[in-house]
Nucleic acid binder design. Sequence first.
DNA 1: TCTGGGGTCCTAGGACCC
DNA 2: TCTGGGGTCCTAGGACCC
Length: 439
Amino acid sequence: MFALVDVNNMYVSCERVFRPALNGRPVVVLSSNDGACIARSNEAKDLGVRMAQPWFEVRHLEREAGLIALSANFELYGDMSSRMMALAAEYAPRQEIYSIDECFLDFEGVPGDLVAIGRDLRSKVLAWTGLPTSIGFGATKTLAKLANHVAKTADRKPGRYPPQYAQVCNFLDLSAEQLHAVLSAADVGDVWGIGRKTAPRLNEAGLRTVLDLLKADVPALRRQFGIVMEKTLRELRGTPCHVVDDAPQPNQQIMCSRSFGAPVTELPTLIEVVSQFVTQVARKLREQGSLAGGVQVFINTSPYRRQDRQHAPSATLRLGQATSDTRVLISAVVRVLRSIFRPGYNYAKAGVLLVDLQQASHEQSALDLFEPGPSPDAPERNRASLMSAMDALNDRFGRGAVTVASAARRPGPSAHASKQERRSPRFTTRLDEIAVARA
DNA sequence: TCTGGGGTCCTAGGACCC
DNA sequence: TCTGGGGTCCTAGGACCC
Protein backbone atom coordinates (compact mmCIF):
# COMPACT_ATOMS: atom_id res chain seq x y z
CA MET A 1 0.00 0.00 0.00
CA PHE A 2 1.51 3.23 -1.20
CA ALA A 3 0.74 6.87 -0.59
CA LEU A 4 1.75 9.91 -2.57
CA VAL A 5 1.89 13.14 -0.56
CA ASP A 6 2.12 16.25 -2.68
CA VAL A 7 2.10 19.95 -1.81
CA ASN A 8 -0.49 21.89 -3.76
CA ASN A 9 1.13 24.55 -5.98
CA MET A 10 4.31 24.22 -3.90
CA TYR A 11 6.18 27.42 -4.71
CA VAL A 12 3.12 29.63 -4.50
CA SER A 13 2.10 27.95 -1.24
CA CYS A 14 5.56 28.63 0.26
CA GLU A 15 5.23 32.31 -0.60
CA ARG A 16 1.74 32.45 0.88
CA VAL A 17 2.92 31.08 4.22
CA PHE A 18 4.84 34.30 4.79
CA ARG A 19 2.52 36.64 2.92
CA PRO A 20 -1.04 35.64 3.73
CA ALA A 21 -2.27 38.60 1.67
CA LEU A 22 -1.51 36.43 -1.36
CA ASN A 23 -4.23 33.97 -0.36
CA GLY A 24 -7.14 33.99 -2.76
CA ARG A 25 -5.18 36.06 -5.28
CA PRO A 26 -3.84 34.87 -8.65
CA VAL A 27 -0.10 34.34 -8.11
CA VAL A 28 2.69 32.95 -10.29
CA VAL A 29 6.33 32.21 -9.50
CA LEU A 30 8.80 33.00 -12.27
CA SER A 31 11.87 31.11 -13.46
CA SER A 32 15.40 32.24 -12.71
CA ASN A 33 15.38 34.98 -15.29
CA ASP A 34 11.86 36.15 -14.52
CA GLY A 35 11.26 34.58 -17.91
CA ALA A 36 8.51 32.01 -17.52
CA CYS A 37 5.85 30.93 -15.03
CA ILE A 38 6.98 27.81 -13.18
CA ALA A 39 4.26 27.71 -10.52
CA ARG A 40 0.70 28.97 -10.50
CA SER A 41 -1.93 29.36 -7.84
CA ASN A 42 -5.34 27.91 -8.64
CA GLU A 43 -6.58 31.44 -9.31
CA ALA A 44 -3.76 31.95 -11.84
CA LYS A 45 -4.59 28.62 -13.49
CA ASP A 46 -8.20 29.78 -13.76
CA LEU A 47 -6.98 32.91 -15.55
CA GLY A 48 -5.53 30.59 -18.18
CA VAL A 49 -1.84 30.90 -17.28
CA ARG A 50 -0.09 27.77 -18.55
CA MET A 51 2.86 25.93 -17.08
CA ALA A 52 6.19 27.38 -18.35
CA GLN A 53 4.34 30.13 -20.17
CA PRO A 54 6.54 33.18 -20.90
CA TRP A 55 5.94 35.99 -18.49
CA PHE A 56 5.70 38.63 -21.21
CA GLU A 57 2.67 36.80 -22.62
CA VAL A 58 0.66 37.01 -19.41
CA ARG A 59 2.09 40.17 -17.95
CA HIS A 60 -0.95 42.15 -19.10
CA LEU A 61 -2.94 40.23 -16.47
CA GLU A 62 -1.10 42.17 -13.79
CA ARG A 63 -3.23 45.21 -14.50
CA GLU A 64 -6.25 43.47 -15.94
CA ALA A 65 -6.76 40.78 -13.33
CA GLY A 66 -4.48 41.57 -10.41
CA LEU A 67 -2.04 38.78 -11.23
CA ILE A 68 0.96 38.83 -8.89
CA ALA A 69 4.35 37.53 -10.07
CA LEU A 70 7.26 36.61 -7.79
CA SER A 71 10.83 35.59 -8.62
CA ALA A 72 11.71 32.06 -7.61
CA ASN A 73 13.25 31.73 -4.14
CA PHE A 74 14.63 28.21 -4.20
CA GLU A 75 16.43 28.56 -0.91
CA LEU A 76 13.10 29.17 0.80
CA TYR A 77 11.32 26.35 -1.07
CA GLY A 78 14.09 23.87 -0.31
CA ASP A 79 13.94 24.62 3.39
CA MET A 80 10.13 24.42 3.52
CA SER A 81 10.38 21.14 1.65
CA SER A 82 12.71 19.60 4.25
CA ARG A 83 10.29 20.55 7.02
CA MET A 84 7.34 19.01 5.20
CA MET A 85 9.27 15.84 4.33
CA ALA A 86 10.39 15.36 7.94
CA LEU A 87 6.77 15.48 9.13
CA ALA A 88 5.53 13.07 6.45
CA ALA A 89 8.33 10.62 7.23
CA GLU A 90 6.92 10.04 10.72
CA TYR A 91 3.82 8.35 9.33
CA ALA A 92 5.25 5.35 7.49
CA PRO A 93 8.23 3.00 7.76
CA ARG A 94 9.64 4.03 4.40
CA GLN A 95 9.69 7.35 2.56
CA GLU A 96 11.01 8.17 -0.87
CA ILE A 97 11.50 11.87 -1.50
CA TYR A 98 10.52 12.04 -5.13
CA SER A 99 10.81 15.76 -5.78
CA ILE A 100 10.88 19.03 -3.90
CA ASP A 101 7.15 18.82 -3.23
CA GLU A 102 6.30 15.11 -3.34
CA CYS A 103 7.09 11.95 -1.47
CA PHE A 104 5.96 8.36 -1.67
CA LEU A 105 5.24 6.56 1.59
CA ASP A 106 5.12 2.78 1.90
CA PHE A 107 2.36 1.83 4.35
CA GLU A 108 3.02 -1.91 4.18
CA GLY A 109 2.11 -3.40 7.54
CA VAL A 110 0.71 -0.19 9.00
CA PRO A 111 -2.64 -0.90 10.69
CA GLY A 112 -5.58 1.46 10.85
CA ASP A 113 -7.76 3.58 8.64
CA LEU A 114 -5.48 5.03 6.00
CA VAL A 115 -7.77 7.90 5.13
CA ALA A 116 -7.83 8.93 8.78
CA ILE A 117 -4.04 8.68 8.91
CA GLY A 118 -3.82 10.72 5.72
CA ARG A 119 -6.10 13.41 7.10
CA ASP A 120 -3.99 13.59 10.25
CA LEU A 121 -0.80 13.89 8.20
CA ARG A 122 -2.37 16.58 6.08
CA SER A 123 -3.56 18.68 9.00
CA LYS A 124 -0.24 18.32 10.82
CA VAL A 125 1.74 19.51 7.78
CA LEU A 126 -0.71 22.36 7.34
CA ALA A 127 -0.51 23.37 11.01
CA TRP A 128 3.26 23.04 11.38
CA THR A 129 4.45 24.40 8.03
CA GLY A 130 1.44 26.17 6.53
CA LEU A 131 1.63 24.06 3.37
CA PRO A 132 -1.56 22.50 1.94
CA THR A 133 -1.16 18.95 0.61
CA SER A 134 -3.12 16.31 -1.25
CA ILE A 135 -2.72 12.61 -0.53
CA GLY A 136 -3.52 9.57 -2.66
CA PHE A 137 -3.42 5.91 -1.62
CA GLY A 138 -3.17 2.97 -4.00
CA ALA A 139 -1.82 -0.54 -4.42
CA THR A 140 1.05 0.70 -6.61
CA LYS A 141 2.94 3.95 -7.03
CA THR A 142 1.11 4.66 -10.29
CA LEU A 143 -2.26 4.14 -8.58
CA ALA A 144 -1.22 6.30 -5.62
CA LYS A 145 -0.27 9.01 -8.10
CA LEU A 146 -3.63 8.71 -9.81
CA ALA A 147 -5.46 8.78 -6.47
CA ASN A 148 -3.50 11.92 -5.66
CA HIS A 149 -4.64 13.46 -8.94
CA VAL A 150 -8.23 12.63 -7.97
CA ALA A 151 -7.77 14.09 -4.48
CA LYS A 152 -6.41 17.34 -5.90
CA THR A 153 -8.85 17.63 -8.78
CA ALA A 154 -11.93 16.81 -6.70
CA ASP A 155 -10.93 19.71 -4.46
CA ARG A 156 -10.40 22.10 -7.32
CA LYS A 157 -12.85 21.21 -10.08
CA PRO A 158 -16.21 20.33 -8.58
CA GLY A 159 -18.18 17.87 -10.68
CA ARG A 160 -15.36 15.90 -12.20
CA TYR A 161 -14.91 13.53 -9.27
CA PRO A 162 -17.09 13.00 -6.17
CA PRO A 163 -16.37 15.71 -3.57
CA GLN A 164 -15.71 13.18 -0.80
CA TYR A 165 -12.46 12.21 -2.56
CA ALA A 166 -11.08 15.72 -2.14
CA GLN A 167 -7.73 16.18 -0.35
CA VAL A 168 -7.33 12.54 0.67
CA CYS A 169 -8.34 9.68 -1.62
CA ASN A 170 -7.84 5.96 -1.05
CA PHE A 171 -8.56 3.79 -4.08
CA LEU A 172 -8.72 0.68 -1.89
CA ASP A 173 -11.73 2.05 -0.03
CA LEU A 174 -13.69 2.35 -3.28
CA SER A 175 -16.23 -0.20 -4.44
CA ALA A 176 -15.82 -1.67 -7.92
CA GLU A 177 -18.53 0.70 -9.21
CA GLN A 178 -16.95 3.76 -7.61
CA LEU A 179 -13.53 2.87 -8.99
CA HIS A 180 -15.05 2.25 -12.41
CA ALA A 181 -16.59 5.72 -12.35
CA VAL A 182 -13.32 7.36 -11.34
CA LEU A 183 -11.28 5.54 -13.97
CA SER A 184 -13.68 6.46 -16.72
CA ALA A 185 -13.49 10.13 -15.69
CA ALA A 186 -9.68 10.21 -15.73
CA ASP A 187 -7.84 10.87 -19.02
CA VAL A 188 -4.92 8.72 -20.14
CA GLY A 189 -2.79 11.87 -19.89
CA ASP A 190 -3.50 12.05 -16.15
CA VAL A 191 -1.50 8.86 -15.64
CA TRP A 192 2.06 9.07 -14.32
CA GLY A 193 4.38 8.25 -17.23
CA ILE A 194 2.00 9.18 -20.03
CA GLY A 195 3.02 12.58 -21.29
CA ARG A 196 2.18 15.05 -24.00
CA LYS A 197 3.54 12.94 -26.86
CA THR A 198 2.05 9.61 -25.89
CA ALA A 199 -1.41 10.75 -24.80
CA PRO A 200 -2.45 11.94 -28.30
CA ARG A 201 -1.16 8.71 -29.83
CA LEU A 202 -3.24 6.69 -27.37
CA ASN A 203 -6.27 8.85 -28.17
CA GLU A 204 -5.79 8.15 -31.86
CA ALA A 205 -5.85 4.46 -31.05
CA GLY A 206 -9.24 5.03 -29.41
CA LEU A 207 -7.96 5.05 -25.84
CA ARG A 208 -9.13 8.18 -24.08
CA THR A 209 -9.79 7.27 -20.44
CA VAL A 210 -7.82 5.25 -17.93
CA LEU A 211 -10.58 2.64 -18.09
CA ASP A 212 -9.96 2.28 -21.86
CA LEU A 213 -6.32 1.73 -21.07
CA LEU A 214 -7.11 -0.97 -18.53
CA LYS A 215 -9.13 -2.91 -21.09
CA ALA A 216 -6.45 -2.66 -23.76
CA ASP A 217 -4.16 -5.46 -24.89
CA VAL A 218 -0.87 -5.29 -23.00
CA PRO A 219 1.43 -7.01 -25.56
CA ALA A 220 0.09 -4.80 -28.37
CA LEU A 221 0.69 -1.63 -26.38
CA ARG A 222 4.10 -2.91 -25.35
CA ARG A 223 5.04 -3.34 -29.01
CA GLN A 224 3.86 0.10 -29.95
CA PHE A 225 4.96 2.11 -26.92
CA GLY A 226 7.78 0.18 -25.29
CA ILE A 227 8.54 -1.26 -21.92
CA VAL A 228 7.74 1.90 -19.97
CA MET A 229 4.13 1.65 -21.10
CA GLU A 230 3.98 -2.02 -20.14
CA LYS A 231 5.09 -1.23 -16.61
CA THR A 232 2.57 1.59 -16.39
CA LEU A 233 -0.23 -0.77 -17.44
CA ARG A 234 0.79 -3.43 -14.94
CA GLU A 235 0.90 -0.86 -12.18
CA LEU A 236 -2.55 0.43 -13.13
CA ARG A 237 -3.82 -3.15 -12.78
CA GLY A 238 -2.38 -3.38 -9.29
CA THR A 239 0.91 -5.22 -9.85
CA PRO A 240 3.75 -3.18 -8.35
CA CYS A 241 6.67 -2.65 -10.74
CA HIS A 242 8.22 0.14 -8.70
CA VAL A 243 9.17 0.10 -5.04
CA VAL A 244 9.55 2.90 -2.55
CA ASP A 245 13.27 3.58 -2.63
CA ASP A 246 14.30 5.16 0.65
CA ALA A 247 18.04 4.97 -0.06
CA PRO A 248 18.43 6.70 -3.39
CA GLN A 249 21.70 6.45 -5.29
CA PRO A 250 23.75 9.59 -5.74
CA ASN A 251 23.00 11.51 -8.93
CA GLN A 252 24.54 10.18 -12.13
CA GLN A 253 24.97 13.63 -13.54
CA ILE A 254 24.96 17.15 -12.17
CA MET A 255 23.99 20.10 -14.27
CA CYS A 256 23.88 23.86 -14.10
CA SER A 257 22.45 25.88 -16.96
CA ARG A 258 20.87 29.25 -17.35
CA SER A 259 19.39 31.63 -19.88
CA PHE A 260 20.93 35.08 -19.94
CA GLY A 261 19.17 38.35 -19.23
CA ALA A 262 20.60 39.68 -22.51
CA PRO A 263 22.37 38.01 -25.45
CA VAL A 264 26.08 37.28 -24.99
CA THR A 265 28.51 37.46 -27.91
CA GLU A 266 31.92 37.59 -26.21
CA LEU A 267 34.01 34.61 -25.20
CA PRO A 268 35.37 36.17 -21.97
CA THR A 269 31.82 36.67 -20.70
CA LEU A 270 30.97 33.06 -21.44
CA ILE A 271 34.13 31.91 -19.67
CA GLU A 272 33.07 33.84 -16.60
CA VAL A 273 29.58 32.40 -16.75
CA VAL A 274 30.53 28.74 -17.18
CA SER A 275 33.21 29.09 -14.48
CA GLN A 276 30.48 30.17 -12.09
CA PHE A 277 28.40 27.19 -13.17
CA VAL A 278 31.32 24.87 -12.42
CA THR A 279 31.66 26.39 -8.95
CA GLN A 280 28.07 25.35 -8.28
CA VAL A 281 28.13 21.86 -9.77
CA ALA A 282 31.51 21.04 -8.20
CA ARG A 283 30.11 22.00 -4.83
CA LYS A 284 27.16 19.65 -5.31
CA LEU A 285 29.52 16.98 -6.55
CA ARG A 286 31.58 17.12 -3.35
CA GLU A 287 28.44 17.20 -1.21
CA GLN A 288 27.36 13.83 -2.58
CA GLY A 289 30.89 12.46 -2.27
CA SER A 290 31.45 11.91 -5.98
CA LEU A 291 34.10 12.58 -8.58
CA ALA A 292 33.41 13.56 -12.17
CA GLY A 293 34.99 11.58 -14.99
CA GLY A 294 34.03 14.06 -17.66
CA VAL A 295 32.52 17.44 -18.39
CA GLN A 296 30.06 18.51 -21.01
CA VAL A 297 29.48 22.10 -22.08
CA PHE A 298 26.78 23.55 -24.26
CA ILE A 299 25.92 27.03 -25.47
CA ASN A 300 23.04 28.01 -27.65
CA THR A 301 21.42 30.92 -29.41
CA SER A 302 17.73 31.56 -28.88
CA PRO A 303 15.50 29.44 -31.13
CA TYR A 304 12.77 32.03 -30.56
CA ARG A 305 14.80 34.74 -32.29
CA ARG A 306 14.12 33.68 -35.84
CA GLN A 307 16.08 36.61 -37.26
CA ASP A 308 19.29 35.41 -35.54
CA ARG A 309 21.68 32.89 -37.04
CA GLN A 310 21.37 29.76 -34.92
CA HIS A 311 24.20 27.86 -33.29
CA ALA A 312 23.90 25.24 -30.56
CA PRO A 313 27.18 23.39 -30.15
CA SER A 314 28.04 21.06 -27.31
CA ALA A 315 31.02 18.86 -26.55
CA THR A 316 32.25 16.45 -23.91
CA LEU A 317 35.74 16.06 -22.52
CA ARG A 318 36.81 12.94 -20.63
CA LEU A 319 39.13 13.72 -17.78
CA GLY A 320 42.26 11.62 -17.47
CA GLN A 321 41.45 11.18 -13.82
CA ALA A 322 38.11 11.72 -12.13
CA THR A 323 38.13 14.74 -9.84
CA SER A 324 36.02 17.07 -7.74
CA ASP A 325 38.58 19.88 -7.81
CA THR A 326 36.87 23.07 -8.93
CA ARG A 327 40.08 24.35 -10.51
CA VAL A 328 40.63 21.26 -12.65
CA LEU A 329 36.97 21.21 -13.68
CA ILE A 330 37.02 24.89 -14.60
CA SER A 331 40.06 24.51 -16.79
CA ALA A 332 38.53 21.49 -18.55
CA VAL A 333 35.23 23.30 -19.07
CA VAL A 334 36.94 26.42 -20.40
CA ARG A 335 38.92 24.29 -22.84
CA VAL A 336 35.72 22.75 -24.16
CA LEU A 337 34.04 26.14 -24.33
CA ARG A 338 36.90 27.60 -26.38
CA SER A 339 36.62 24.71 -28.81
CA ILE A 340 32.90 25.13 -29.45
CA PHE A 341 32.58 28.93 -29.29
CA ARG A 342 32.18 30.79 -32.58
CA PRO A 343 32.16 34.59 -32.70
CA GLY A 344 29.27 36.40 -34.30
CA TYR A 345 26.37 34.66 -32.57
CA ASN A 346 23.92 35.95 -29.99
CA TYR A 347 24.18 33.29 -27.32
CA ALA A 348 21.13 33.08 -25.08
CA LYS A 349 21.98 30.20 -22.78
CA ALA A 350 24.87 28.10 -21.52
CA GLY A 351 25.21 24.99 -19.42
CA VAL A 352 27.73 22.71 -17.76
CA LEU A 353 27.16 19.02 -17.09
CA LEU A 354 29.34 16.79 -14.92
CA VAL A 355 29.15 13.24 -16.25
CA ASP A 356 30.56 9.79 -15.59
CA LEU A 357 30.24 10.32 -11.84
CA GLN A 358 31.78 7.84 -9.45
CA GLN A 359 32.04 7.53 -5.70
CA ALA A 360 35.14 9.21 -4.30
CA SER A 361 36.10 6.06 -2.41
CA HIS A 362 36.18 4.05 -5.64
CA GLU A 363 38.63 6.37 -7.25
CA GLN A 364 41.92 4.71 -8.03
CA SER A 365 44.64 7.28 -7.88
CA ALA A 366 47.94 6.93 -9.74
CA LEU A 367 46.13 5.30 -12.64
CA ASP A 368 46.55 8.22 -14.94
CA LEU A 369 49.45 7.22 -17.15
CA PHE A 370 49.47 10.49 -18.97
CA GLU A 371 49.62 12.80 -15.99
CA PRO A 372 53.29 13.49 -15.32
CA GLY A 373 54.65 14.05 -11.85
CA PRO A 374 55.41 12.14 -8.67
CA SER A 375 53.02 9.95 -6.70
CA PRO A 376 49.70 11.75 -6.81
CA ASP A 377 48.65 10.73 -3.32
CA ALA A 378 49.97 13.75 -1.46
CA PRO A 379 48.68 16.29 -4.00
CA GLU A 380 45.31 14.52 -3.92
CA ARG A 381 45.08 15.00 -0.19
CA ASN A 382 46.07 18.66 -0.50
CA ARG A 383 43.52 19.09 -3.20
CA ALA A 384 40.78 17.61 -1.05
CA SER A 385 41.61 19.73 1.96
CA LEU A 386 41.80 22.88 -0.15
CA MET A 387 38.33 22.16 -1.54
CA SER A 388 36.84 21.45 1.90
CA ALA A 389 38.40 24.64 3.24
CA MET A 390 36.82 26.55 0.37
CA ASP A 391 33.44 24.94 1.04
CA ALA A 392 33.70 25.69 4.76
CA LEU A 393 34.55 29.35 4.13
CA ASN A 394 31.63 29.70 1.76
CA ASP A 395 29.33 28.07 4.30
CA ARG A 396 30.44 30.46 6.97
CA PHE A 397 30.77 33.71 5.06
CA GLY A 398 28.26 33.21 2.28
CA ARG A 399 28.34 31.73 -1.15
CA GLY A 400 31.04 33.27 -3.30
CA ALA A 401 33.17 34.43 -0.36
CA VAL A 402 36.04 32.36 -1.75
CA THR A 403 36.15 31.27 -5.34
CA VAL A 404 38.47 30.50 -8.22
CA ALA A 405 39.59 33.67 -9.95
CA SER A 406 38.04 32.95 -13.34
CA ALA A 407 34.67 32.47 -11.66
CA ALA A 408 34.87 35.76 -9.78
CA ARG A 409 32.28 38.29 -10.77
CA ARG A 410 33.74 41.38 -12.40
CA PRO A 411 32.84 44.63 -10.71
CA GLY A 412 29.92 46.55 -12.12
CA PRO A 413 26.58 45.49 -13.51
CA SER A 414 26.57 42.56 -15.90
CA ALA A 415 23.89 42.46 -18.52
CA HIS A 416 23.81 38.68 -18.66
CA ALA A 417 23.13 38.31 -14.95
CA SER A 418 19.77 36.87 -14.07
CA LYS A 419 16.98 39.22 -13.28
CA GLN A 420 15.44 38.46 -9.90
CA GLU A 421 13.43 41.56 -9.39
CA ARG A 422 10.56 40.09 -7.44
CA ARG A 423 12.24 37.72 -5.01
CA SER A 424 10.83 37.41 -1.53
CA PRO A 425 13.13 37.26 1.53
CA ARG A 426 14.68 33.88 2.42
CA PHE A 427 12.63 33.91 5.61
CA THR A 428 13.77 30.62 7.08
CA THR A 429 17.45 30.36 6.14
CA ARG A 430 18.96 33.87 6.45
CA LEU A 431 19.04 35.61 9.78
CA ASP A 432 19.04 39.04 8.16
CA GLU A 433 15.96 38.18 6.13
CA ILE A 434 13.92 36.55 8.87
CA ALA A 435 10.25 37.41 9.10
CA VAL A 436 9.42 40.19 11.54
CA ALA A 437 6.17 40.13 13.50
CA ARG A 438 4.70 43.52 14.29
CA ALA A 439 2.16 44.20 16.96
C1' DT B 1 12.42 43.39 -26.02
C1' DC B 2 11.08 39.34 -23.05
C1' DT B 3 10.38 32.17 -23.86
C1' DG B 4 12.83 27.34 -16.97
C1' DG B 5 16.20 24.24 -14.98
C1' DG B 6 17.49 19.74 -13.28
C1' DG B 7 17.02 15.10 -13.51
C1' DT B 8 15.87 9.77 -15.11
C1' DC B 9 15.30 5.87 -18.20
C1' DC B 10 14.92 3.65 -22.76
C1' DT B 11 16.08 2.90 -27.58
C1' DA B 12 18.37 2.85 -31.90
C1' DG B 13 22.41 2.79 -34.28
C1' DG B 14 27.35 2.72 -34.91
C1' DA B 15 31.94 1.00 -33.66
C1' DC B 16 34.29 -2.67 -32.47
C1' DC B 17 35.40 -7.49 -31.18
C1' DC B 18 36.02 -12.44 -32.36
C1' DT C 1 30.84 -13.28 -57.97
C1' DC C 2 29.99 -14.54 -53.32
C1' DT C 3 29.89 -10.42 -48.73
C1' DG C 4 28.47 -13.77 -41.16
C1' DG C 5 26.59 -13.57 -36.92
C1' DG C 6 26.50 -12.62 -32.30
C1' DG C 7 27.92 -9.92 -28.69
C1' DT C 8 29.25 -5.56 -26.04
C1' DC C 9 29.87 -0.83 -25.31
C1' DC C 10 29.05 3.87 -26.20
C1' DT C 11 26.47 7.84 -27.66
C1' DA C 12 22.80 10.75 -29.09
C1' DG C 13 18.25 11.65 -28.95
C1' DG C 14 13.68 11.27 -27.24
C1' DA C 15 10.23 10.71 -23.83
C1' DC C 16 9.06 11.37 -19.33
C1' DC C 17 9.04 13.60 -14.55
C1' DC C 18 8.61 17.90 -11.44
